[in-house]
Structures are given as C-alpha cells and as structure tokens.
Write a protein that binds this DNA or RNA. Structure first.
Lengths: 352, 352
DNA sequence: GCGAGCCTGGCAAGCGCTTGCCGGGCGCAC
DNA sequence: GTGCGCCCGGCAAGCGCTTGCCAGGCTCGC
C-alpha cells in the first residue's frame, strides 16, 4: 500500500497529491493562514487519503519549538506523584501533546539538569512536580534556570511549590493542616505528635503552619490548645516510621499523631504496630493526601483529600493555556475524610 | 555570556570556534568516524567551552531516527506499573535517553494508537508494559503494528506478555502460581478461592496455570489436592473486591483466597473485612507482585515478590542492547514472601 | 473606469545536524 | 624514485517542515 518507501508520507507527498504547493499544504494543516475552501478540502482529503502524519522533529526544528511537554517528578512510585502524573498525562493526551517524563529520584541535581535539558530541547512546556527543597542555593539555581526557560519562550508550571518563575497550582495546604488540627482537638487530643515533611518545603511548612495554628490556639468552641511535638520525616514511608518512633520515645504520653502526608502516616502506622500501640485506641493517626490505599489500611486512615489528579491536569492546563502576563497561583480545595484511624472506641471523646 | 542570541549554540558555532568544518565537528562529537587527535581535542574543548548541547530534533531529522524511547503503561497509578516505569526510567536515564510516556488508561485502542505514533515519530525503541488483552483481534492489530515498527528499524520490548514481535521480559509467572499453591497446600487449605486476572492475559493465565497445577495435584510430600473456585477480577483493586465477594458467596466454606496480583488482594481484603471474615484466622489471603504497600497492610500480605523495577530495567536494556537475530525472552526469578495474612493462629496447620 | 489595497497561493530560504563523496597528503612497496 | 592506497578533512546535499516575501487577481472607492 502507498509508496511506503522508507518513511511515512511527507508533506510534499500530500501537496503533490492535492496539486498544491508544499507551503499551502502546510498552511492548511497548521491553520496558520486562511486558505481558500476549494484548496483546503483538497488538501485535507489528500492528507487523510495518504494517512499523512507530520514529522514532529521536522516541525520542531523549523519552528524551533517542540510540541511536547516535559514532566518532572521526584519519584513515580510514590502514589502522590503517580496520581499527579496521571492527571498531567490525561490532560496532555487530550491536548494532543506527548509528554517526556523524568524521575529525579528526589535528587535536586537531576532536577536542575532536566530543566536545563528541557530548555536546550526547547520544549514548549515544563511541569515540575518535584516537591522542592530546603536548599536555598539549589532553589535559586533552579529558579534561575526556570526563568531562563520562560524567557526563551517556554511555559512552566509548578505543582505544590513556589519559585521565582512559573505558574503554580497547589492544594490548600494551610487548610489541610487546620482541618487535621481541628479534628484532633475536637476528638479531645491534647498531646499530639506531628510527623512533618522536610523543612523548607512549602508543602510541609504550610501544612505544619495550619496545623500548629489550630493546635496552639484551640478551637473557637472553647476547646483548649494542645501540647505539640514535631519531627521531620522526609515525606517518605520510612522517614515517617523513623520520625514516629522518635516521637513516641520523646513523648510517650501523646494520644495522636498527625503525619503531613499519607506515606509517612503509613510508616507511622508500622512504627505504632511495632511498638504495640493500638490505633486508634491508644494513639489516633491521620495523614494528608488521601492516596488510594489510605482507605484499605487497617484501620482505614483518616486523612485530608487532596485532588492529586486535578493538580496534574491543572498544571498542564496552565502551561497550555493562553499566556497571561501575571504569574498565576491556583489553590485547590481540600476536604477532611474521617475514617477509623481516628475514630476508634478508645479515643477520648468530647461534645462537639 | 556567549553569543546567546536565540538558541543555545549550534554545531556550527563549535566548528567555527575550533576552526574546523561542521562535518568534522559532527564526526568527533558523534564518534562516527575517526578524527585526528589534534582536531579532536580542539573540537572537544570548544564544545565544552561553549557549553554546546546538540539539538535533538535536528539530529533526529537528519538521522531519521529519534533517540528517545517510548514507554507505554496501562495505568501509572497502579503500583506494579509505576515500579516498572521506575526501572525503565532509571535505565533510560543512565543510557542518556529521554523517555516519552503514555498512559493508556487500560484502553487497547490507545495502545495501538500510541504504537502507531511511535512508529511515525520513528522513536528508536518502544517498551510496552501494558498487560495485554484477551481480545484476539486487538492483539493481532497491535502485533502487526509492532512488527511494522520493528521492520522500520525500531526496537521493541514487551513486559510480561508475548506478541508476534518484540523481545520479552517477564517474571516467572508459572512459578509464582506454584509457590502460592504449594504454600497454601502446606498450610492445610483444601478449599481455595482464586481471584484471577482477565482471561487471555499471559500474566494471569500463567499464574493461574501454575497455581492450579499444584492445587489440583497435591504436593509431592503427599499433601492432598484442593477444591478450587476461580473468579476473574481485572487485575484491579475493585475487581478483586468484587471477585472475592462472589467467591465467598459461591463457596462459603473456602479457607483461603489467592489473588493473582496484590492489587486484587487488597480488594479481596476489603471484601473479607466487610463480610466480617477475619484474615488469616477465618480465611488466609495472598497475592502476587509484592508491591511496596503489601507489607503495610494489616495483616501484612503474603505474596510472591516480582522484581518489578528490574523488569523495567531489563526491558530498556533489551531495546538498547545490541541487536540480535532471534527474539529474546527473559524470565526473571520470583520468590515467596510469607507474612501474616496466611500465618494467623487459626489457620489449619499440618506437618510440613 | 482606473488605481489602491487586500486576499491568497507559491517560491525559496532556512531550522541544526548527518553523511556520501571527493580530494589532498602521506606512507608504503616494488 | 614513482605509483598505489589509505587516512582524514571538507563540501554540499539533504532530512521534512515553516514562514517571510512576492506577485497575481480580485474587490472596492472615487
């Protein structure tokens, strides 16, 4: 079938077949300039007759702008990131874009390198779903690189973090913290341990700020403030397990542990189990994100639902959407999901 | 710094700076032909002085071969696929390749389309980690497309499935099934429910075959065969939950459930919990894959460890490795991991 | 009725890199 | 000493597509 020499057919084939010039064919297919109806239909017909597929490299070269979007995550196997990636992939696919993905393995160096490459490759858009870093210097270098990327005409979006350049889309982290704090206070907890993320990450800092604000000041209903102990856990399961162990040693009297993400809550659960502290009877436990497996843990994990897929979709939406002059910052709503890990019989209860 | 007009510097810049022709510069950088030492060093020096980055599109266009590899998964949020993706990404990164990823959302149509696009784009390699399909027609079309892809010079590898074209790397699925069967028999289970994957998927069929073979014939040690009930569960958590519910209704007397992957085991666990059947006391439960969360479930899940990351790495290794004439089929070893979900006090025990 | 201006098609010059081919310079064998 | 062949550098022709510019024909205004 078809000439089918070495390549799928080229624009020239289409143009010839339709009896027009290559330029005209290009214009109708790209819609870059109005073309008369007669020709347009002829070209379109020829294109589909020949099953024409434009060569993306030629196009990228000519336009010096690649039509794919680069997605950077810290760890694909982390449910949070894979959900975000899922959303980004869906949106990109719907927009007909291909996405090149990189996994930094939580290395900042890799992140910088990837952004640099994205710039060199002149991809049209960049979505950074890495969780950021406390390292000022690294952040500045990354920011500078991102700025350069934008100045060279690319679009960038950050998921759940701020930088000197790029639009931002994030969950309402402060609210997430407040919700957890309010929930724990209302349940009567007065000594709570917090498994935080790495210092300096907006995601962790904001969640922590919201949580502490509520915990430290009590509820409007008159509920008294609580004593709080904080340990950082790197946002990973193992980090959470370690941090929870320390907390338990440090403050044996605590009746609740709030992990700032679900992965760490899973780790904390393991620590509690290992130490023989029953959840929620002896210690209540909660997380943030509502990763899919949260509901299948035993006890099912109380958490704050973060629209992870939507974060990914929006991020892609931003970088593909029309260019606006001000930097955007979208904040997505979150919602408390109460399950068994904070609701057991032994939990101290108070009138609401 | 540097001319820095619109683009990062080009090969021509390097050549000029080094005082050689573009062709020579190209050859030393690509190593496509020996070049005298003097020139070589000059060129290399200029390249690094100018921080030269080759334009991948120009290269792809000229070579009519893209240096990136396409990775296709059915669902990035499924831990199995994200682990595989992780391995593939690592390997690709080490080999200096970029990877463009597509998530088919478990739609066969998308899969076909993606392969087609990979061909049009002339990517150098394709890694298909989709789990296949029972739909003969779809498989044939996909196989044909893959064949065309290979004939056009691309390399393809399949993870955990066979097709008319492409190398294959997979876990020892039959062994995985046998291990589970042997384990359950040894524990004394004589009525077992099996939550299988979709019919027609090699991964499911092989696991099932291994499991049934052992279950139906007993152990060499003289352990008697078991009565088996099978229900398919689509390899998803929800499918597993539904299938397990059916099994329990169908054969209330079963003392063990073997899910053919961990996701379905998680679903089955939920079903058991909902029905008030304690695990492992009333019903033992086990899965296959050993996804990271398996050990954090309560009870921790007995399963068969599948080297998921390694599957991804190998797949990339195959497509990037030297071209050999025969189709390869790598089978990776698996290992039984016994945890609490089959080890509770109430489990019927027999001498080993 | 005629010129100004607009609309639309085509020409051709690239985008940055690779590669087939040519040719100059050198070493070697006879 | 001369001829042959080899090694390595350069020339230039693309890879497939986009786009600035030009020109022909049209419409419209005066």
């Amino acid at each position: 079938m078809s000439p089918a020499g070495k390549h799928a057919c080229t624009l020239l084939d289409v143009a010839t077949h339709a009896g027009v010039s290559e330029a005209t064919a290009s214009r109708v297919l790209a819609g870059s300039r109005p073309v008369g109806d007669a020709l347009r239909t002829r070209v379109l017909a020829s294109a589909s007759a020949l099953a024409y597929t434009p060569n993306p490299h030629a196009r990228a070269l000519a336009r010096s702008r690649d039509a794919s979007i680069a997605l950077v995550v810290h760890d694909v196997t982390d449910p949070y990131f894979s959900e975000v990636a899922r959303g980004a992939l869906e949106a990109a696919c719907e927009a007909g874009r291909t996405v090149v993905i990189s996994d930094t393995g939580r290395h900042l160096g890799r992140e910088l390198e990837v952004v640099r490459r994205a710039r060199a490759q002149r991809v049209e858009a960049l979505v950074l779903a890495g969780s950021g870093s406390a390292d000022r210097g690294a952040c500045e270098r990354l920011g500078a690189e991102l700025l350069a990327f934008e100045r060279s005409g690319g679009r960038a979006a950050l998921v759940g973090r701020h930088l000197v350049a790029g639009d931002c889309v994030r969950p309402d982290n402060v609210l997430a913290g407040r919700l957890l704090g309010g929930h724990l206070l209302a349940l009567g907890h007065r000594v709570v341990g917090v498994v935080a993320g790495p210092d300096g990450l907006t995601a962790s800092d904001d969640r922590l700020a919201g949580l502490l604000a509520v915990l430290a000041s009590g509820l409007p209903s008159g509920t008294a403030p609580a004593e709080v102990h904080v340990r950082a856990g790197a946002f990973t399961r193992d980090g959470g397990e370690a941090a929870a162990s320390e907390l338990l040693a440090l403050a044996p009297g605590l009746t609740a542990i709030a992990a700032l993400n679900d992965q760490m809550a899973i780790g904390a659960l393991a620590a509690l189990r290992r130490l023989g502290r029953r959840v929620p009877d002896a210690v209540a436990l909660c997380g943030i994100d509502d990763i899919p497996v949260a509901r299948d843990l035993a006890p099912a994990l109380t958490t704050v639902r973060v629209p992870m897929v939507e974060l990914g979709r929006r991020a892609v939406g931003l970088v593909l959407g029309e260019k606006v002059h001000t930097r955007r910052d979208e904040c997505l709503d979150v919602e408390l999901v109460v399950r068994q890990s904070t609701a057991g019989a032994g939990t101290v209860k108070e009138a609401r």
